[in-house]
Amino acid sequence: NLRWTSEAKTKLKNIPFFARSQAKARIEQLARQAEQDIVTPELVEQARLEFG
């Protein structure tokens, strides 16, 4: 299971509600691909840039 830093959680809250669950799934996918067990603000930002 993935842990989220408080900064990453804050960044996730800045994503519009309607896109948040999809973004969260993508962020967690990116973390797993990078073999990380902690979601960082950088991963959230990477996903945000993908979504535009």
Score class of each variant (00 low, 15 high):
V39E: 00
K11E: 09
R20F: 03
R26Q: 07
N14E: 15
R48A: 13
D37I: 11
F18D: 07
F18Q: 08
I27R: 01
R48H: 08
E35C: 09
E7M: 07
L30K: 04
I27S: 12
V44M: 06
E42F: 06
P41W: 12
R3M: 11
Q22T: 12
E7Q: 09
F18Y: 14
R20C: 04
E35P: 05
F17C: 09
A47N: 03
W4Y: 02
F17I: 06
F17D: 06
K11A: 14
Q46W: 10
F18K: 09
E35A: 13
Q33F: 09
V44P: 00
F51T: 05
A34E: 08
P41R: 07
K13Y: 13
L12Q: 00
A8R: 00
A23R: 03
I27H: 00
T10K: 15
K24S: 04
P16S: 04
K9N: 06
S6V: 07
V39C: 01
R3C: 08
E35Y: 12
T5A: 05
Q29I: 08
K24P: 01
K13H: 10
E42L: 06
E50R: 05
E42W: 08
E45M: 07
P41G: 13
A31E: 00
T10C: 08
L43V: 05
E42Y: 06
Q33Y: 09
E45H: 06
L30G: 01
N14C: 11
Q46A: 08
I38S: 06
A23D: 01
N14Y: 10
Q22L: 13
L2C: 03
Q29T: 08
E28P: 00
I15D: 02
L49C: 06
V39W: 00
E7R: 08
F17E: 11
K9V: 14
D37N: 13
A47C: 05
I38N: 04
T10S: 13
R48K: 10
P16H: 05
F17M: 11
R3E: 10
E35S: 13
I27K: 01
Q33C: 08
L49K: 13
Q22I: 12
G52A: 14
E45Q: 07
T5G: 03
T40G: 04
S6A: 12
I38Y: 09
N1Y: 13
E42S: 06
P16A: 05
E50N: 07
L12M: 08
E50W: 09
A8D: 00
V44N: 00
F51G: 04
A25Q: 12
Q46S: 07
A47Y: 15
V44H: 00
E7C: 06
S6G: 07
A31H: 01
R26Y: 15
P16N: 04
W4F: 01
F18M: 11
N1K: 13
A25G: 05
F18P: 13
Q22K: 14
E42V: 05
A25R: 13
V44F: 07
A31S: 03
D37G: 08
Q22R: 14
S21K: 14
T40R: 04
F18N: 10
P16Q: 03
F18R: 10
L43C: 04
V44A: 02
L12I: 04
I27Y: 01
E45G: 03
R3D: 05
L43Y: 05
I27T: 06
L43A: 02
E42N: 10
Q29E: 14
L43R: 02
F17S: 13
L12C: 02
S21D: 12
E45K: 05
L30C: 03
T40Q: 03
E7H: 05
T5S: 12
L2Q: 02
I27C: 08
Q36T: 15
S6L: 11
Q46E: 07
W4E: 01
V44T: 01
F18G: 09
